Amino acid sequence: MADTAAPIAVERSLRGFTGAGYDKGRPLLVQAAWFAVLNLVFVKWWFPARWRPALLRAFGARVGRRVLIRQRVRVHWPWRLDVGDDVWIGESAWLLNLERITIGSDVCVSQDALLCTGSHQRRTPTFEFDNGPIRLEPGAWVAARAVVLRGVTVGRGAVVGAAAVAHRDIAPGEVLAARGVR
């Protein structure tokens, strides 16, 4: 017989949130310097795309050769970013990397895509962090407005289609399409 009990709602107490166990990876001064550079220079249309990889490297990212990063791309913590060679990151992509994001060579992250390594423990009142790394293997494509959630690996040559949400690992060569998209 099927369980027909309604789910029990969790009473939130966000005041009790501690962020216990989360380490930002750099001192506050470095974090502040990055946010200033990100918002005043890195995301701007007038800042040359060819200089963006060098700026990320200056803040601790590992970035390969011939990497194209368009304007309005946001990277939360550069020191938690590894990018291979010949990678394209499209306009307004957001790499919310509270944990490490690894992007293999020949990967395309299209416009407005979100790679989100952060989450919360939904069953706890204080909503503590439940983060996990993201890995995009060589040749993967995260299409426009697609989302890759924490803990997911997108396999070699796999595609997360436009507006799709990858909440589980995507096998090599697999295509994950948004509902209703062929």
Rank of each mutant, 00 (worst) to 15 (best):
R100Y: 04
V152D: 10
G104S: 11
G104V: 06
A146K: 03
V87C: 02
D3A: 01
G64A: 09
F127N: 09
P172F: 02
V75C: 13
G19M: 02
A33E: 00
N131A: 02
W77Y: 15
R70K: 14
L96A: 11
V41Q: 06
G104T: 09
R26M: 10
V75K: 05
V37S: 05
L38G: 00
W77P: 00
R100H: 13
D106L: 01
I134Q: 00
W34F: 05
T153C: 02
P133Y: 05
G25P: 08
L28Y: 08
W141K: 04
V10G: 07
Q111F: 12
E11D: 15
T124S: 14
F17M: 08
R156V: 07
V63Y: 01
G19W: 06
G132V: 00
F47P: 08
R100C: 02
I103K: 08
G104Y: 05
W45G: 02
A61T: 07
A140S: 15
V154T: 08
A171Y: 04
A144Q: 04
R145T: 00
V147Y: 12
F47G: 12
L38V: 03
V160M: 01
S13P: 00
F127L: 13
I101M: 10
A113D: 03
V159W: 05
D82Q: 12
A49D: 10
G25K: 08
D82R: 11
I8A: 15
S92A: 15
R150K: 13
G173Y: 06
V160A: 00
G173I: 04
A49F: 07
L114T: 01
A2D: 15
W77E: 06
R72Y: 13
W94D: 13
V87L: 01
L56I: 07
R57K: 12
G90T: 03
D86K: 01
A113P: 04
A144F: 01
P125K: 13
S13D: 15
T4I: 11
S13Q: 13
V152P: 09
V73L: 00
R80A: 10
A33H: 01
I103L: 11
E11N: 14
R72F: 11
R65K: 11
A143G: 02
F59P: 03
L56N: 06
A49L: 09
F127M: 14
A140I: 07
R145F: 09
A58H: 02
C108E: 15
V152L: 03
I101Y: 06
P172V: 08
C116H: 04
V63D: 01
D112Y: 15
G157I: 09
L149V: 05
P48T: 10
T4R: 13
M1V: 12
D112T: 01
M1C: 06
Q121D: 15
A140L: 03
V159M: 11
L95I: 13
V159I: 15
V41N: 04
G139H: 10
A5K: 08
N97P: 10
